[in-house]
Structures are given as structure tokens and as C-alpha cells.
């Protein structure tokens, strides 16, 4: 059982939880994830570490309500307990030696991109943060990105925040203008990452994508999170979650992410109805 120290609604769909988890906080690094169950008998879901405070012994996660489990999680308040919280899992983002990098995040993926940008910025790397949301109501972590990047490129689908367009529009312009990145790190919805990787491949820029497939145990035991990378089966939980974006079979990953779509929709509707009644 882990206590929720702080809860912040970042936008109508996205919530931040700071959780008391000293053992996880001691080890957590950007790029790693945790597995939690909001309630006993609940589902195990992976969430990427959004921040950590070793002194306080806390780990921050940011999640979007997309289904029954995140809906349940969203009903837990400050002082409530999360049934299970395990981690840190996966490999940390490799940032050594990077002097100039573009961090490209979209939607709730921005929450995962942020600690990476922060770590790079603090180690003296020139960070170009290209961050996109559908509209200004969904924007999260704007100040944090501004503070932890040399250049910040806000994008929105409808032009209500920053520039109108996709993150790939901004990234293409940067690459075409001759910006040379040691690495592009992209975190966000699968289609977004797919197109970011296609773009950077055109320009021959090494790109790392952070994958978030369906998982159960998160320790390598079940193989549910498998991806095809460079023609080989990789487990996101132990081999990743970050992989060479030019080698990932994104179409396969997109298809696998939808394996339980019908179940998830029904479970979500049912859970919402339960909370409405209560």
C-alpha cells in the first residue's frame, strides 16, 4: 500500500499523483516505469515515471483517463492508498554524451518526455522541446518544459496553443533548417512516434522511441509487451521501454495495442456508471 501525497488535475483528462514510495524513488531514473494496481483485485497497469524526489521518497506519475483502471485511479484522492506500486522497471534513458537533442512529445506522452528533457538540460545538453497537444485545454507541464529546454516549440492541432500543426511539422522545419541533433527522443501516441521516426529516418538522425505496450507483470515473465525491433522479438519491460525508433515495427505495435479495445470500452462504461451511481 502506497499513500498518495499529492494529487493535481492537470487538465480534464490528465491527473498527476505524487506517491509515497521511498524504495522506488531511491532508484528511479527518467525513462523507467512503474506498475500499479489502484485497488485490490484491480488490473496491473504500467505508468512511466514522470518525476521523483529521492529526499522525500516520492514518485510522481501522470496519467490520462482512458479506461476502467485509470478511471478508478482518478477517484483516489490525497491521503488515499494505492494497493500496489512496484518499480522502477525497464531501462533508464541513456543520456550520456548527448550534447544536443530534440525531445518530441505529444499528449500525455509529454509527461514522460519531461523528466528526460529535464535530465538532459541539467547535464548541459542543448534541448529542443517540441511538444504537441490537440488544443490549449489539454496542455500540461508548459512551464516545466520552458524551464528545461534551450528552445521550446509548442504545437496544437487547432492553433489555440503555440503554433497550429503537428509536432512533425515543427521537427521537419528544424531538421530542414540544418539543426544537427545527436539524438531525437520521442514519446507520445504510437502514430505520432511512427511519423516522427519516419521523418528522422529521412534525415538520418538517430531516434529513440519510448514504447508503452500492454503489460502484466512488467518483469519479463509474461511476454505480453513484446514488440518486433529490427526483426527480433523484444520485451518492452526488460529490453526497453526505449528502442531504436527506426527499427520498431510500429504498425504491429499499433495493432497489438488494440487487442482488448472492445473489452476496455465496456469496462470503462461500466466503471463510469458505477461512479455516477455512487
Amino acid at each position: 500500500m502506497n499513500r498518495i501525497l499529492e494529487r493535481k488535475v492537470l487538465n480534464p483528462q490528465v491527473t498527476l499523483l505524487k506517491i509515497d514510495a521511498p524504495l522506488v524513488a531511491r532508484k528511479a531514473e527518467p525513462g523507467q516505469f512503474i506498475i500499479l494496481r489502484p485497488t485490490l483485485d484491480g488490473e496491473r497497469i504500467p505508468l512511466t515515471v514522470a518525476d521523483f524526489d529521492r529526499k522525500q521518497g516520492s514518485v510522481t506519475v501522470i496519467f490520462q483517463v482512458v479506461g476502467a483502471t485509470t478511471e478508478r485511479l482518478n477517484h483516489l484522492m490525497e491521503g488515499d492508498f494505492i494497493a500496489d506500486f512496484a518499480g522502477p522497471l525497464g531501462r533508464a534513458t541513456r543520456t550520456e554524451g548527448l550534447r544536443k537533442a530534440a525531445v518530441v512529445g505529444g499528449g500525455v506522452g509529454a509527461a514522460i518526455a519531461y523528466p528526460v528533457a529535464k535530465k538532459l538540460h541539467r547535464q548541459g545538453c542543448e534541448v529542443h522541446a517540441v511538444i504537441g497537444f490537440r488544443n490549449k485545454d489539454l496542455v500540461i507541464l508548459e512551464d516545466e518544459f520552458r524551464q528545461n529546454s534551450a528552445k521550446f516549440f509548442p504545437m496544437s492541432d487547432d492553433g489555440t496553443w503555440g503554433e497550429r500543426g503537428l509536432v512533425t511539422d515543427a521537427l521537419r522545419r528544424l531538421l530542414e533548417s540544418g539543426e544537427q541533433y545527436d539524438e531525437v527522443i520521442t514519446i507520445g501516441p504510437l502514430p505520432m512516434m511512427k511519423f516522427v521516426c519516419q521523418l528522422t529516418k529521412e534525415f538520418g538522425v538517430k531516434t529513440i522511441a519510448s514504447m508503452n505496450p500492454i503489460m502484466i507483470d512488467g518483469t519479463g515473465m509474461c511476454g505480453c509487451c513484446r514488440l518486433t525491433v529490427g526483426g527480433q522479438v523484444k520485451f518492452a519491460c526488460v529490453d526497453g521501454p526505449e528502442f531504436d525508433g527506426h527499427a520498431i515495427d510500429f504498425d504491429e505495435a499499433i495493432s497489438r495495442a488494440g487487442m482488448y479495445r472492445d473489452f476496455e470500452r465496456r469496462a470503462y462504461e461500466k466503471t463510469c456508471n458505477l461512479f455516477k451511481k455512487a
Partner: peptide
């Protein structure tokens, strides 16, 4: 440890499980 797959085409299709995953979903996750 990690479940083996055969390395044949189609193992990433939806509906393909390792026994570990299938059993974990049914047993541990009820």
C-alpha cells in the same frame, strides 16, 4: 523467466499468447 516464442510469422498477431501470459491473466489476475 522469459517465455519463448517459436520465431514463426504471425506470432505478434492479436490472440497469440505465451502460456505464462494466458495463465497469469486467468490465475493471478483472476
Amino acid at each position: 523467466g522469459l517465455p519463448n516464442f517459436m520465431g514463426i510469422p504471425g506470432e505478434a498477431l492479436k490472440g497469440v499468447y505465451s502460456a505464462n501470459e494466458f495463465l497469469t491473466r486467468s490465475n493471478l489476475m483472476k
